[in-house]
Amino acid sequence: MANTCTDHHNDDAEPAPDATAPTPPEQTWHLTIAYDGSAYAGWQVQTKQKTVQGELRTRVRLLFRSPELKVYGGSRTDAGVHALDQQVSFTAPTPPDMTPDKLVYVLNRWLPDDIMVLRARICPGAFNPRYDNAGKAYTYCIAPGRRVNPLFARFVWRTPRPLAVPAMREAAALLTGEHDFSSFAANPGYELESSVRKLYRLDVSEQHGLIFINAVGESFMYKMVRGLAGYLVHIGAGHAPAADATRVLAARDRSQAADSAPPQGLFLAKVFWNDDEWRHYEPLIPPFTLI
């Protein structure tokens, strides 16, 4: 599905309050943000816990003087998961001098250093990134059996031993395609009509002593990517042959796969707006170069 939002570029001065001015017309905004999720209990607002959505919503409500404003995200990332391309929307009364450049400037002054607004757009109609996207890509980072530079240690899963990458690739090929992925979702069937998903790509690559799992799909169930990553590490560690992936898929039972990978190695890497955009996608490796 094509993204119909339009870019605007004007001044970036902060808006001045005007108590006598009439209420401005509502506009739907579309933001792209990045964040280091290490200090957050995930994207979604939670009671008494710091979340990315909560931090962003507080600032947006202040900026637009709209205490009931709702902020929607394209992916409900888990606690400790990071994002390079999280998509956000909200609708708010928007003064004529509130431009996308100005919004980016002000929010980035107000937000904590581990959350950054990359881009802002005004949409001509209704828009919700959770439902209006055409697919997503995630990258999972692994340090197999080795110490890593402490400057990026919090962005990788350090496994206790080296991993057999060829076996991981063989299993990944068996998992690619349209399948029932109940065996890899934390809550199979939760709020879902179907647990069948189309996985366009599941690649395993090596660079600089690290292993990267790239998952590209139409949509993903809750903790599905972490489930896939944990299972591929299970295969790479020699706990099962690559062909076991076929059995696990057919079982449609979460207990038949390995434990999920921990959250710190996972990045929401890219959101697609056009149906074939994923075909030309090349993941940023390593993804934490943008954090």
Score class of each variant (00 low, 15 high):
99 T>N: 05
48 K>G: 10
139 T>V: 15
92 A>S: 05
238 G>T: 00
252 R>E: 10
169 R>N: 12
219 S>T: 15
37 G>R: 02
193 E>V: 08
151 L>N: 12
86 Q>H: 08
50 K>N: 14
208 H>P: 00
178 E>H: 11
267 F>C: 08
102 K>E: 08
236 G>R: 01
91 T>D: 09
167 A>G: 08
112 P>L: 12
65 R>N: 14
93 P>R: 07
138 Y>S: 08
234 H>V: 03
262 P>I: 11
199 L>P: 05
277 E>C: 07
7 D>E: 13
136 K>H: 09
280 H>N: 15
51 T>K: 10
153 A>H: 11
81 V>W: 03
37 G>C: 07
206 E>T: 09
283 P>A: 15
159 T>C: 07
18 D>K: 04
202 L>E: 02
40 Y>G: 01
63 L>C: 03
45 V>S: 07
256 Q>Y: 03
26 E>W: 13
96 P>F: 11
225 V>A: 04
53 Q>V: 06
37 G>W: 04
180 D>A: 04
71 V>C: 07
66 S>M: 08
91 T>F: 09
208 H>G: 15
16 A>W: 01
289 T>R: 15
40 Y>T: 05
120 A>L: 11
81 V>M: 06
266 L>C: 06
40 Y>D: 02
255 S>P: 02
129 P>T: 04
146 R>G: 08
104 V>K: 13
196 V>I: 15
181 F>H: 05
80 G>A: 08
150 P>N: 13
136 K>A: 08
204 V>M: 03
92 A>I: 02
75 S>Y: 01
208 H>I: 09
174 L>I: 08
195 S>V: 05
159 T>V: 09
77 T>H: 01
10 N>I: 14
239 H>P: 00
238 G>K: 01
272 F>R: 00
196 V>F: 05
281 Y>P: 05
39 A>S: 12
84 L>M: 12
58 T>K: 13
199 L>I: 02
200 Y>M: 04
202 L>N: 01
9 H>F: 15
54 G>C: 07
265 G>Y: 11
181 F>I: 09
59 R>L: 15
242 A>C: 14
63 L>I: 07
93 P>V: 10
265 G>H: 09
228 L>A: 07
57 R>S: 08
121 R>C: 15
68 E>Q: 11
4 T>S: 13
133 N>T: 13
127 F>S: 04
123 C>T: 04
21 A>Y: 05
70 K>P: 03
116 M>N: 14
111 L>E: 11
209 G>P: 05
226 R>C: 03
282 E>Q: 13
151 L>H: 10
207 Q>L: 12
142 I>P: 02
187 N>Q: 14
125 G>R: 12
71 V>S: 05
112 P>D: 13
202 L>G: 00
6 T>G: 13
116 M>F: 14
17 P>T: 03
87 Q>C: 11
155 F>S: 00
123 C>E: 10
93 P>C: 14
110 W>Q: 14
135 G>S: 06
143 A>L: 06
100 P>T: 06
